[in-house]
Design a protein around this nucleic acid. Structure first.
Lengths: 111, 111
DNA sequence: CATATATTTCGAGGAAACTGGAAATATGGA
DNA sequence: TCCATATTTCCAGTTTCCTCGAAATATATG
């Protein structure tokens, strides 16, 4: 992932409504969610949610597909993984990371 | 790490000058760097750099100590690890992560 | 075709962020 | 003490972001 993309993804997640939306979709999994459901659950006006959904789409973190009258948004897990890979790579670039407890294992917990 | 802190850290890193500053300090390691050196290397005006350093300090990503006439800034690796832990935890909350190649190992590469 | 629902786009107001020059503060050295 | 250097704070201008009502668009159904 290029630096400009990394910044776009970080910026997309650095906002409370968007972070909540993304987490909602992560939890929802493959089934995804419609804007209507998300708006109801989060108490956001439709226009506000739509604004944030667009930002998440542009960052590549979520993707919509149409299902009849509904849109279904789903999280793009690979994009999130790519962000984590970039951050860990750069965090450890050089040799510093050994000073801190190792990170690994978190992502496997659910497996 | 609490959600408000996560957002603060993400926002701090979601800006090109700050991401570069932080990476500079990560690479610099325990020796740290002075604003003068960083400003020269990045081609930033002192006031602009100072503005971004303050943002990184407030996010808890870096810490200054005084050494005579100089300030020395150093990266807080633990803070970065905490961010990664939050993101991986939440990325995998539920069961989705198995669909993607596992993340682990990156951070150990340097060890 | 007419109507209802789902969702987005438009537009405006207000808040927050970024930039960089100029002035202020801190420290060391002559 | 006085000067030079390092760094920050102050400030103003500009830009970008957030919110949300209202209007527009897409789709389904009768």
């Amino acid at each position: 992932m290029e630096e400009s993309n990394v910044i776009a993804v970080l910026a997309a997640l650095a906002q409370s409504s968007r972070l909540r939306v993304f987490r909602q979709l992560v939890v929802a999994g493959a089934g995804g969610l419609t804007p209507g459901l998300m708006a109801a659950e989060l108490g956001l006006p439709a226009a506000t949610l739509s604004f944030h959904l667009k930002a998440l789409v542009q960052a590549g973190l979520i993707m919509p597909t149409r299902d009849g009258r509904h849109l279904v948004y789903r999280a793009d897990y690979a994009r999130m993984q790519a962000l984590l890979a970039f951050l860990t790579d750069n965090c450890c670039h050089g040799e510093p990371c050994m000073a801190v407890e190792p990170l690994a294992g978190n992502c496997r917990r659910a497996a």
